[in-house]
Amino acid sequence: MSKFIKAAVASSVLAASVMGASAAQAATATAEARANILEELTVTKVAGTDLDFGTIITTGTAEVVTVDTSGVRATCTSVICSGTSDAADFTVSGSNGAAVQLTVPASVTLNGPGGAIMNATLISTALTALDASGNGSFSVGGALSVASAQADGAYSNTFTVTVDYN
């Protein structure tokens, strides 16, 4: 259905431009019709996916809480982990077989209440080229370093992920 609509939209534009072209040809003898292929690239985040460590309750012992790129949280031994965890999932589309590069920062510092901070390292699945239909995807997980005396509260920050074309 989507293909049909695309074709319909395309053909209506095509019709419009062909009509435009023939009108132009009627007016001048040397009209030209040209189009440039615009190779495109899209990046979308899969709705409802975010890098989420769930809820963590400190117990006075430091621990690194890890969420892998499939969103699974490793068993917590020292701190108490509850709630669901998730990785951030992205889809990329463009020209078939196009080489792409992901740039994901190695680590990010989260800012919490009263100047408290927490460090997280980020891990991403590999994506080096789009497939034969021009699609690709990647996921970002992370490892959160919870200090033994980590202050309670809300911690937040952003990190920048880019898809780079050669």
Partner: peptide, 30 residues
């Protein structure tokens, strides 16, 4: 540019912390 996310206050009763790591994603072209 990410929208300003309102800081969601966890129930003050609950111990622990919440984490919001928001990805900003983009494209670079030469």
């Amino acid at each position: 540019v990410p929208k300003a996310v309102p800081v969601t206050q966890q129930d003050q009763e609950a111990k622990g912390f919440s984490i919001a790591l928001t990805p900003i994603y983009g494209v670079t072209i030469p």
